[in-house]
Write a protein that binds this DNA or RNA. Sequence first.
DNA 1: ACGGCGTTTGCGGGATCACGCAGCCGCAGT
DNA 2: ACTGCGGCTGCGTGATCCCGCAAACGCCGT
Lengths: 242, 242
Amino acid sequence: MKLLLVEDDPLHLSYLREQIGGALPECDEVFEAANGQDAEALARRHPAADIVMDLQMAGRTGIEAARTIWRERPLTRILFWSNYSDEAYVRGISRIVPMGAAYGYVLKSASEERLRLALRGIFLQNQCVIDNEVRGLQQRSLGQSGGFTESEYEVLVDIALGLTDRAIAERRGLSLRSVQNRLHQIYDKLEVSRPEAAGEEPVLNLRARAVSVAILRKLLNHGALERAEAELRGWLAGRTRH
Amino acid sequence: MKLLLVEDDPLHLSYLREQIGGALPECDEVFEAANGQDAEALARRHPAADIVMDLQMAGRTGIEAARTIWRERPLTRILFWSNYSDEAYVRGISRIVPMGAAYGYVLKSASEERLRLALRGIFLQNQCVIDNEVRGLQQRSLGQSGGFTESEYEVLVDIALGLTDRAIAERRGLSLRSVQNRLHQIYDKLEVSRPEAAGEEPVLNLRARAVSVAILRKLLNHGALERAEAELRGWLAGRTRH
DNA sequence: ACGGCGTTTGCGGGATCACGCAGCCGCAGT
DNA sequence: ACTGCGGCTGCGTGATCCCGCAAACGCCGT
């Protein structure tokens, strides 16, 4: 049994090695990568390897690496081992996991026991193991209450990037008015209402406020913004070339 | 020699204990706290203790704990040991460090050697030891180029929170026009110009774009927003009571 | 005192944004 | 076919925002 560890923090990496040694004695080969690039290359050289991977690393993200790896080999088993349970990450992952693939999501703050169970569950029993802090997010984001539609989320990201209504309309193939309607829905779900009584002067700029609470509620985070920013640059380039 | 360790991640805590055992054999008593509250209480019970502290912890932040500790005992030596080198944290610290206090700031990604040198430098030699990734930020933020005035930074935070120009003016005691001028300076320094030729339709909402860039450049982060949000609530309460 | 420089403030216009209203379309259920 | 519901769209209004212009104020150096 081969294992590929992708983690850029040496401290966490050594902890991981230790836990794996204890929990998975049937693992006889361990490879290591410190970023998404190397991870993809190593995964290609060792097609049978299971993967334990950190999200947010310098250079190529864990999510990006997972996407290309899964595209080439959809049944690869991947355990994501991350610091955060932000919706931005959970949403990113649940969008790229192929059907039938066994995967897991364990927080770094989890106990040793939880990590060991996840390792054995995924790689030996082929089950999906997801910490329930994360699981909560997952249902909420796919379910109804307080959850965001995929297209609402896209618009939310666009205003966070600083696009105008018109630019969003063009980018997403909507009319100007539809974009504004979506904004209204977003303001609703984020409870960014105007607390002032009628006749009072407004205190909040809804657009900016929405971004603020989205960040506070961890719908958005630094990594998600970086990815979106990169996509935006691509779109802008292809657009001015017209 | 007494030492107080403030760190909520057990993994990092055990690493810290180990490094201290190796680097500071003259340390004979070690106390531990997992959040800002306990840290303040423990610091009061052991007034002679030096402190190694994580920033961002659940509940009371390291910055907040440091502020109250330094207020009670300005010469306490504190080594901040943090994941990030965001300007938001650096700015927060350099605002509260009392003159004459020895303190340090090392990143968790630093080598063991760097951590050991910092421990000995601060607690035995009474010097300030600051990783130069952080040091770079510090000069840039206090210096001229690309740096932000304290008042510009305040306004930046306010728009990130979602306040209107008028509300910012009221809160900071400025005229509406002055706020807008500050916004213009901020847009300048963030290089959030309008790249379009004259007559073209604008693609960016400057206000929202500025927040986005500020986050991407790590001038703002989640923790800073949370703190600012709390202050904002306080201000709003005292204002409607009028 | 006299200019020079930066900051603050008011005024005004043009563009954008927030949003109610109304019409259009597709899609279920009776 | 009729009806109701939800999403998309255009129009119009009022508030906000962006910014150029100009006047007032403090501060510094010759």
